[in-house]
Design a protein around this nucleic acid. Sequence first.
DNA 1: GACCAGGTAGCAA
DNA 2: TTGCTACATGGT
Length: 293
Amino acid sequence: MATGTIALAELAGGLDLYRTLESGQSYLWRREDGEMYGGDPAPDAWYSTVVDGDVIRVRRRDDRLEWESTTDAEATVRRLLRLDDDLEAIVAAGPDDPLLREAYEAHRGLRLVQDPPFGCLISFICSAQMRVSRIHSMVTALAREYGSQIAFDGGTYHAFPTPEQLAAATETDLRDLGLGYRAPYVVRTAEMVADGEARPAEARALEYEAAREYLTQFVGVGEKVADCVLLFSLGFDEAVPLDTWIRSAIEEYYPDCDRGSYADTSRAIRDRLGGEYAGYAQTYIFHHLRTGE
DNA sequence: GACCAGGTAGCAA
DNA sequence: TTGCTACATGGT
């Protein structure tokens, strides 16, 4: 077993694992002390995930982040949790907006994640008209049924399935897992990636709106899901997914940003939330409104 | 028993 | 292009 620690004092703006991993950005981590989104996790609870066949788990212990893995995972931990983001600078650079300031103040230490592209893509296809706890359940079920098993420290972990593994599922299989009408979307998108027809990571090379358009070729991916993948996996920090919570925030706090179409409203709210890091702002506002904390 | 949840595909005008 | 509507499922 490889292990290591990262001093939290080194991270500008700190790190709150609960807010980062249980705010509905990533569905690829599990908390080892019980069900997620139920609130009240132990302050030193382990969170685990699997990346490229390696188990990684992290927890906060006093003033440091501990990690354990099947391999030397410090660089991967830094990438997945975006530990090199200067959170203080990002918060300071945001617009002087009452709702945003309230959200930033209330959820210190929430960082954006950087999920692996395929798992992120399928997660957000599953997210349509679903509560975050159920999205997590669905993604967990996909990993359990179709992902590779990996033994680590006396336990069994499940990787999120590869495109090939998931493409082997049938629509009926996934409906039986509880995916509902999303089942054929997941199968067809997995087949597209497995067949080499398109790959989500290819959107990285494109300009933001072209990248969003590229992702909508996947079945079950519209503009909102595409924005989520761009923001939570592909490094487009300006992406502002227009979900039900943000739409209600626009209605209540930024009514002049409602321009009718998704693309025009997206541009308007992106400018209002500071442009370059508008996605960071969006994620805080989403978490703030959704949890009511 | 409605109503809602990090929406999208398919179709009509 | 824009504007409906059907679509699964579980929790409140």
